[in-house]
Write a protein that binds this DNA or RNA. Structure first.
Length: 628
DNA sequence: TGCGGCTATTG
DNA sequence: CACAATAGCCGCAG
């Protein structure tokens, strides 16, 4: 359906280009017609590249166009016209292009994010165009040309311009098939013509990625699934750009109140802050046996201080100290101090000042698949905010939050990806640990520990006995996990259900020199792989859910404002709260079906039409209003 | 100044 | 303290 497969021809009609450049004002109306004339139909891939203040480039159906833009409104008009007329799958090198669109006030529906798909295909973290291009063309990464290498005299030299036989400097692709380093390092953005050629290159990369996705997996079903996940992961990156731009609504005075319960009132200057800090320290240091000179921030000193008051522990972590809290006043004071210290250094007044804007939105950078297994990550404390502060996350006047979290997502995902029909049967229950416990003949708590131990690779402790029961009762799921463990242990990459490559790492020589160290490192790699196939597949399902929710709720003015691994927080006009709650449930069914049910031909894939996913949904004013 | 260790918080 | 993450402070090596 996508007719742009012959894009390598890339005929550039310079006559048309110059004409379009001079007709900038009337262009938005002309653009959809040009694309349709070139053979682009609704939903087709249309590559887009933006150089703010310079221009934008569009490539589709083997053609490309470049336009000068004078500002964000100009840019917005162009893109919105095409979006309305053709609703294309916007194709770009990375979500930096998405961020430019969002800054111009444009929200588009669909995209193909070359960087995101690269991570899916090749694993790892890095995804810059030169590496993406080299990987797709089977070129060694070590041969990627660098800009401005230093020679022995310390003089910068641009090899790309001095090497002989280097071809056309206005072509982003060198004769050796690498991307031109001066283009990669910013040269692509210097003229409208180059911006269009950069879009064209992104389109070529996307075409190669799609070929790889369809060709790689063993079955047609898993190939289709990989393609679906590539689209969902792409839009997840777009969602990340929106999350970063929109931010999380914060009730600042409530946040101040909550922080004050730990630290006292907001200090007016750094001197006041220091006085309050010393006062907190002194509460602990003045207790008998502690010593006025003890540095509470030095774990070694804290440990010997605890020794002086009769507490001997291998370390001073909270979970060890917690049990002694009731019986020991020093331990109690120390833990209270630690909590306050934590709030002050990480989630205190400075945190609010730094990350909450004048519009009362908490903003941080988001990544769609930063984790090793492909989870979303967020900065500015958005993913590890202490529970006590959730009361400060409040919907704006006239709005509500609709919050939804997936119940027991990892064991349900395990049932799906492994194709274990008995475990899949257990997912029919709202609480799947209940039927698992019945089958194992143990208490629910024991069953839960056993399932988690299987997914995490725990072998010691109370889990040992229950694990043997798992082996007998759910051999298919256990086999799936064991195989991932063995593959990872051997240092071989594993793949998630959605086709993400999970790279294994090499064990260092220092560990190999000590056999015990090497064995421990291999075991750790096995546990990592065992968990990554479950956690990674769960992340793919979650993102498929999130982007479905995004697509279906745009029209009612809803915005996803937080993604938290298995939880969505949606900010929506109050009158649409109930509809949004229903929509979250429906979108889970839709996403789960698409995520798991790519198989229609009875392939040997593990396909779990019978696995049930459940969400707990509530309409609330504050994040803290949600049930625990 | 960079890095590993220790600590706390989240799913 | 099993799996994943972000983020702070401390001591120490360079």
């Amino acid at each position: 359906r996508n007719r742009s497969d012959d894009v390598s021809e890339s005929p550039l009609d310079s006559r048309l280009d110059s004409r379009l450049d001079s007709l900038s004002d009337s262009l938005p109306e002309l653009l959809p017609g040009l694309l349709v004339g070139a053979g682009v139909i609704r939903g087709d891939f249309v590559a887009l590249s933006i150089s703010p203040g310079v221009g934008l480039g569009i490539a589709a159906a083997g053609k490309r166009w470049s336009f000068k833009t004078v500002g964000p409104s100009d840019l917005a008009a162009h893109v919105e016209r095409i979006e309305e007329a053709l609703r294309p799958r916007w194709t770009w090198w990375s979500n930096e292009t998405a961020a430019s669109l969002i800054a111009a006030g444009v929200r588009v529906a669909m995209c193909w994010d070359v960087a995101a798909v690269h991570r899916l295909l090749f694993g790892g973290w890095r995804n810059e165009p030169a590496r993406v291009w080299a990987s797709l063309h089977e070129l060694p990464l070590s041969s990627i040309p660098a800009m401005g290498q230093l020679d022995l005299l310390g003089l910068a030299r641009d090899w790309s311009e001095t090497d002989e036989g280097d071809g056309d400097l206005e072509n982003p692709i060198r004769p050796d098939s690498h991307l031109r380093p001066d283009w990669v390092s910013g040269g692509w953005a210097s003229t409208p013509d180059r911006v269009a050629k950069w879009a064209d290159a992104a389109m070529q990369a996307a075409i190669l990625q799609r070929q790889r996705l369809m060709a790689r997996p063993a079955t047609e079903a898993s190939a289709l699934r990989s393609d679906a996940i590539a689209r969902s992961e792409s839009v997840a990156e777009l969602l990340c750009a929106e999350l970063a731009a929109d931010g999380l609504p914060i009730d600042i005075s409530r946040a101040d109140e909550i922080i004050a319960t730990f630290l006292g009132p907001r200090p007016l200057n750094s001197q006041q802050a220091a006085v309050a800090r010393n006062a907190r320290d002194d509460v602990v240091r003045s207790l008998p046996g502690v010593g006025a000179s003890t540095d509470l921030r030095n774990p070694t000193q804290v440990r010997s201080m605890l020794n002086r008051v009769g507490v001997d522990l291998p370390d001073t972590r909270k979970w060890r100290l917690e049990q002694l809290r009731e019986s020991n006043a020093v331990v109690d004071a120390l833990l209270t101090w630690r909590k306050a210290e934590r709030i002050e250094t990480t989630f205190g007044y400075a945190w609010l000042d730094q990350h909450v804007g004048d519009d009362r939105r908490l903003r941080g950078a988001w990544s769609g698949s930063d984790g090793a297994a492909g989870r979303m990550t967020a900065q500015a404390g958005l993913h590890n905010m202490p529970a006590e502060l959730r009361g400060a996350v409040a919907a704006e006047p006239g709005y509500v939050f609709v919050r939804a979290d997936l119940g027991q997502i990892e064991p349900r995902v395990l049932a799906a990806v492994s194709g274990d029909e008995l475990l899949a049967a257990a997912t029919a229950a709202d609480d799947m640990y209940a039927p698992v416990a019945a089958r194992l003949g143990v208490e629910r708590a024991v069953a839960k520990v056993a399932v988690l131990a299987a997914m995490y690779g725990q072998t010691s402790g109370a889990a040992g006995q229950a694990l043997r029961g798992m082996e007998n009762s759910y051999p298919v799921a256990m086999q799936y996990l064991r195989r991932a463990d063995e593959t990872g242990r051997a240092g071989i990459d594993v793949f998630t259900f959605g086709g993400r490559r999970i790279r294994m790492w090499q064990i260092g020589d220092d560990a190999a020199a000590v056999p015990d160290d090497e064995r421990a490192a291999m075991a750790a790699r096995g546990r990592f792989a065992r968990n990554a196939v479950v956690q990674g597949a769960a992340a793919e399902l979650f993102k498929a859910w999130a982007v479905t929710v995004r697509a279906r709720s745009m029209s009612i003015g809803a915005r996803i404002v937080l993604c938290l691994h298995d939880e969505l927080l949606v900010h929506v006009p109050a009158e649409h709260g109930a509809a949004m709650a229903t929509l979250l449930d429906n979108c889970l069914n839709e996403a789960a079906w698409r995520w798991s049910h790519a198989d229609t031909a009875g392939q040997d894939d593990a396909v779990a039409t019978t696995v049930r996913f459940v969400a707990d949904v509530s309409v609330i004013e504050r994040w803290s209003d949600a049930k625990p």
